[in-house]
Amino acid sequence: MDTSRQRSRRIRRASAVAGCVAALGLLPSAALATPGSGVTATVLAKGTTAEGLKIKTKGRTDVVVRTITIAPGGETGWHYHQGPLIAVVQAGTLTRTLADCSVERSSAGQSFVEPDGARKVHNGRNLGTVPVVLYVTYLVPEGAALSVDAADPGCP
């Protein structure tokens, strides 16, 4: 026969398990991420500063320069960056859909800056017939990923 103490312990344990299961449902899932397609990237140069740059990073900052090519019909998938980046469009036209569902287009010879943070998700697409070629410089905390997959915020 259960004592009231044993019963109370089982109820607390069951409540804790139920709470953990419910909390897991609130976490972003990799299944919600939108994978990219038709994208290739090559690191051209990489270095780490001796001190943090004034870009919200404490400690050292990785500076990475890459060329990114997006084939016609390709896209980056929804993602964000852990540090700001500056990009120059060398060829083609990049169409970026931003977190607020606004759309920005950048053509060859133009540049743009992408701010950092999970609230700044975006998806880059090549809606043209020629490859989009970008030269991108990232400024991220030392050891941080250059991009983090994110869920589509519900843009059409």
Rank of each mutant, 00 (worst) to 15 (best):
D116G: 12
T129H: 08
E142S: 02
C20G: 14
I55S: 04
Y80T: 15
G52S: 06
V136H: 00
N126T: 14
L24Y: 05
T34M: 10
V64H: 05
A16N: 07
T3V: 07
Q90W: 08
T69I: 08
A71V: 13
V43S: 09
L94D: 01
W78H: 02
V133C: 09
G25R: 08
V88W: 04
R5I: 15
V140P: 13
V140E: 12
L98N: 15
L32M: 11
S29P: 03
A118E: 10
G109K: 05
G117R: 08
P131D: 13
G25L: 13
I86R: 06
H79K: 06
T129N: 14
F112N: 01
S102Y: 03
I11Q: 03
P131M: 12
H81F: 10
A91D: 15
L98K: 11
T69E: 15
R10H: 01
G38D: 10
G52K: 07
Q110K: 12
R96G: 00
L53F: 00
I55W: 06
R5Y: 14
T42V: 03
R66P: 00
T69K: 02
H122T: 13
R119D: 11
C101L: 14
P131Y: 12
G47H: 08
V132N: 04
V17H: 03
V64A: 06
I55V: 15
T95D: 01
D62W: 03
G117M: 06
P153F: 07
R12H: 12
P84F: 02
G19L: 12
G83E: 02
P141Y: 08
R96I: 09
H122P: 14
I11F: 14
L146K: 00
Y135N: 10
D100A: 00
Q110T: 05
G47N: 10
A71F: 01
R9G: 07
